[in-house]
Design a protein around this nucleic acid. Sequence first.
DNA 1: ATTGTCGGTTCATTATTCGAACCATTGGTT
DNA 2: AACCAATGGTTCGAATAATGAACCGACAAT
Lengths: 259, 259
Amino acid sequence: MGTVSKALSLLSLFDHVRLEIGLSDITRLSGMNKATVFRLMSELQAQGFVEQIGNDRAYRLGPEVLRLAALREATVPLLSVSQDILRQLCESTGETAHMSIVQGHQLNTLTHAYSPQHGTRVTMEDAEVLSFHGTGSGLAFLSFAEDSFVEGILAEPLAVHTPQTQTDPKKLRAALAQARVLGIAESIGGFEADVHSHAAPIFGPDQRPIGALAVAAPMSRMTTQLKTRIRRELKAAALDLTQRIGGFCPPEYPQHQAA
Amino acid sequence: MGTVSKALSLLSLFDHVRLEIGLSDITRLSGMNKATVFRLMSELQAQGFVEQIGNDRAYRLGPEVLRLAALREATVPLLSVSQDILRQLCESTGETAHMSIVQGHQLNTLTHAYSPQHGTRVTMEDAEVLSFHGTGSGLAFLSFAEDSFVEGILAEPLAVHTPQTQTDPKKLRAALAQARVLGIAESIGGFEADVHSHAAPIFGPDQRPIGALAVAAPMSRMTTQLKTRIRRELKAAALDLTQRIGGFCPPEYPQHQAA
DNA sequence: ATTGTCGGTTCATTATTCGAACCATTGGTT
DNA sequence: AACCAATGGTTCGAATAATGAACCGACAAT
């Protein structure tokens, strides 16, 4: 691994439960030498990718990432188009909608939208890490991901998030097969209890999945009518998003069937 | 300069007029050796900071920056709070509002909001680079920046964007002095002809300016009444933003006077 | 067929990174 | 007050990774 990769990998130690990390923690988490970490962090800091704050000199992500993200959006308007689509989606379904993408071996929520229609709703946080086997989004992605990727996920121990979390590889594979046919994956209470989520994959220019669009509703509201509506709206929305970011669905994606 | 800094500096070659760059161009723009650039870009690509696309294998910014930006927002909600404030600001003034921050020696627009009130409006792009001497935002920042920074900017040749661009260091210094008193800077057609912009600095936790909030209107609509309203609203909005991101105005900032 | 691009690769030389040990400071314990 | 275990930061010889001139094959224009 080159020096640059080492430095950048330090950035991925940050997540939404560890927004600020001290030098010693970074050293431990990365397994690198403290002097090395210090030097790398200093360089990252000089370039604005992290900043140090407060009296404990913990590091946190810096403002430079915002500039890059704004430029990335100017290149491929994934976020802005998604937000647009999510707004419509949560309006037409009355439930919480969100978009996540896969980076490395992680599924990250990037943005979400709430519907004001009901007093109770599923709440989300951006930059949250989702599990592949426990969420509709994860299953939607896996259902069109490369075999080797799916194998990699199923081979590792699968976290039990709730009593309803499905961890049996066989049953998960069956769920993926069904999702491939429908173009929609779902998870009933697999990540958060009482949350029923539907999701559809979104594809990049190379016809490979890059993430998923999802609608999450309280289980108590999940009637057959709502399910039907969600599936219809979700599929249209995901297709729309894929196209508007310059992506293409693979030929095996069931575009034209009823969901 | 360390290897990491070199690699990260390659990322700053991208801007909103150069969203995709080929290997040879990067080599030329950076002045580095082609082999070096290739290796660095490969590492950046492996980490998702850039991606290669199309048949010409040009590089563009990758999706990883979005994840980091979402996390940065979870740490310091600069963007989301700004968007909130910009929406109110453009509503109450009826004109285009935007927010920019300084990174290195560059002033970058991060987000903006339009008012639907008028048929004509000043249009913006996110991730655009603004000039310090030609825009209200730039002057607002400079008016509370460190002396050495101001000197650095004024020492370099100042671009002439329009016939109205002020490039006389003496007059610019006078404008900064006035902005320090008012807490508001303005530029009349200094960057784009026919655009009159007002701006107020926003401050970080260390009481130093990090950027500016601005309202830009067509010169034809800039009446005394509108100016008064813009100054009042802008000052309140900038103060609000500073506070909501955990920042503090320096003691010399004229908070309580009328603008 | 020649020339000039392009993205990408090679490999001996060389400069940078690495890491164990070391400071200085802080905060809690005895 | 002495002690201990943290913290963030620094040093410097040894080890490793970065470097860059030259090269490759592919493509386009001349």
